[in-house]
């Protein structure tokens, strides 16, 4: 039995790798299906037949799509992401700074939402059926049922319009003090925290409740253990795997959320860059951003799966 865990983990990593290849295939072909010839679009007014033919050869556009796909993959592996169509800058340069910004936003959100969601999810499960549990459940269902931008607009209405604590839809680069920094990040982080924590609380609560329904917890209850002791000492150690799994899975909601949040708050991150690239149809930029997002998503899902495998004592 002991040998099963490494082989299971290995096969999970292998599946992730295969999926990544399929995904990169999909990303490349979805974006090369574009109607219209890239070379003539790029040249615009100056599109003489000779110039178009020359540029096509220079960009390897006359090669079969499969060759271009392989060339593109090799470029990605070497860190060469191509050149942006819109402003002729290397995609890597465009992305670098933006990626750091997005990671800052995501990291900060994770830092706040994980402890918050853990506390709320576990306590809600501890007092299941109480008024407190019902309030937590209703609020989380409410947040999950509405689009991220509705959460964002409500947060702006509450904190910026009525309470006037924070600036509304503006992200300034003029950060002079810690206080400025706090104010600038507050709205995007608050909104993202809402979106991500709601998922985490639901999944965490469900994981704890599932463990609470087991015979050994009932046994502890019959012994006369108090509720906190029941949950913290008996149920939690066994629910830890599912909970961590749930945390990793809910963090993948960050990806969807960050696209909306960066747009609404004008935050200079990579999602915003991608939305702009879609409206200008800047293919190399779209491809690279899409790959970064898919990679992040896959890493989180695979991590969740691996944790679930490692945490299952029946496999050990």
């Amino acid at each position: 039995m002991r040998a099963r865990v490494p082989s299971l983990v290995l096969s999970r990593l292998l599946i992730a790798l295969v999926t990544l290849v399929i995904v990169s295939f999909a990303v490349f072909f979805a974006t090369t299906l574009l109607p219209g010839d890239t070379a003539s679009i790029l040249l615009g007014q100056a599109a003489t037949p000779e110039a178009v033919a020359g540029l096509r050869t220079a960009m390897h556009l006359d090669e079969p799509a499969l060759f271009r796909f392989l060339r593109w993959c090799l470029g990605l592996l070497r860190g060469d992401l191509g050149t942006s169509y819109a402003n002729n800058m290397p995609v890597a340069t465009l992305i670098a700074g933006r990626l750091v910004n997005t990671l800052k936003l995501a990291g900060l959100t994770a830092l706040i939402s994980v402890p918050l969601a853990l506390t709320l999810g576990i306590t809600a499960a501890m007092w299941r059926g109480s008024v407190y549990d019902r309030i937590v459940t209703i609020v989380t269902i409410g947040v999950i049922s509405v689009p991220e931008f509705v959460v964002a607009t409500s947060a702006v209405l509450l904190f910026a319009v009525y309470l006037k604590w924070l600036p509304a839809l503006s992200f300034t680069n003029e950060i002079h003090s810690f206080y400025d920094l706090l104010r600038a990040y507050a709205m995007p982080v608050i909104t993202l925290t809402f979106v991500v924590s709601a998922q985490m609380i639901r999944m965490g609560r469900a994981a704890v409740i599932e463990t609470l329904n087991t015979p050994y917890v009932e046994m502890a209850l019959l012994k006369g253990a108090s509720r906190p002791r029941l949950v913290l000492k008996h149920a939690l150690p066994n629910a830890l795997g599912p909970i961590v799994n749930a945390m990793a899975l809910s963090l993948s909601y960050l990806l969807g959320g960050v696209i909306i949040i960066e747009t609404i708050f004008n935050y200079p991150g990579i999602a915003m860059l991608m939305v702009d690239a879609v409206s200008t149809r800047d293919l190399p930029l779209i491809q690279s951003c899409a790959m970064i997002f898919c990679l992040g998503y896959l890493v989180l899902i695979t991590a969740a799966d691996v944790i679930a495998i490692l945490a299952n004592p029946r496999l050990r």
Partner: peptide
């Protein structure tokens, strides 16, 4: 595999 591309 299709499922592992984020929907947005």
């Amino acid at each position: 595999a299709m499922n592992s591309i984020p929907s947005k």
